[in-house]
Amino acid sequence: MATVFQKPSTLTDAKLHYCPGCTHGIIHRLVAEAIESLGIDGITVGVAPVGCSVMAYDYFTCDMVQAPHGRAPAVATGLKRARPENIVFTYQGDGDLAAIGTAETVHSATRGENITIIFVNNAIYGMTGGQMAPTTLPGQVTQTTPYGRDTSIAGFPVRVCEMLSTLDGVEYAERVSVDTVPNINNAARAIKKAFQNQIDKKGFSIVEVVSTCPTNWGLTPVEALGWLRENMLPYYPLGVYKDRSAGKETK
């Protein structure tokens, strides 16, 4: 019988701790497939954040470092500067990357660190049980915005790709989603490109993956995908925000 699908060799056999229906599992697989297909497992070092993916170090077969909350890009900077021959990526959520770690994100980007960032945006703090994130939508109900995010109190969401694409140091910024098979295939291409850019020494590459959190959104996995399409994608349009080598600069 022909094998049509298997777990990439670059994922360990550890059982994922993510909630049923969570898109982290898909994104982990896409990252692992990129590492596998590029043949870089032996020289790759991943940086796990604080948040739902805090234990990502158990899932990838490459060397892993667990960073303090928000500091993954600084840790990655240290790893990459110490061993430029290694491939270094961070895997971060919205609270980690766009709230507590905004300074580290922006400055690693503006320095043009030759690293790869996988940014999972599900508009909520998952690990701590569903509080407002920097990317929580206006009106969105969370544990800490029980009446919906009131922008007069809590301000507005951060659009990370748009923001980072204004920086000269950024090589590549693309926003993708994993809500449909075509979108998953597109996300796989973008993630692989973000690693290839690093191999080619092109510089800072970030892929933002718009994701779901069925548990904390209070929806079934399928409903969550619908909510993502109806609410998140209009606010966070998919697409390439910057691809310097391809001549696509910010307007």
Binding site: V45, V47, V65, A67, P68, R71, A74, V75, A76, T77, G78, L79, K80, R81, A82, R83, N86, A103, E104, H107
Partner: peptide, 14 residues
């Protein structure tokens, strides 16, 4: 904050 975490990264790299 970033500087000490860069140290963490570089020290991790050995």
């Amino acid at each position: 904050v970033a500087a000490i975490n860069m140290v963490l990264g570089a020290a991790s790299a050995g």
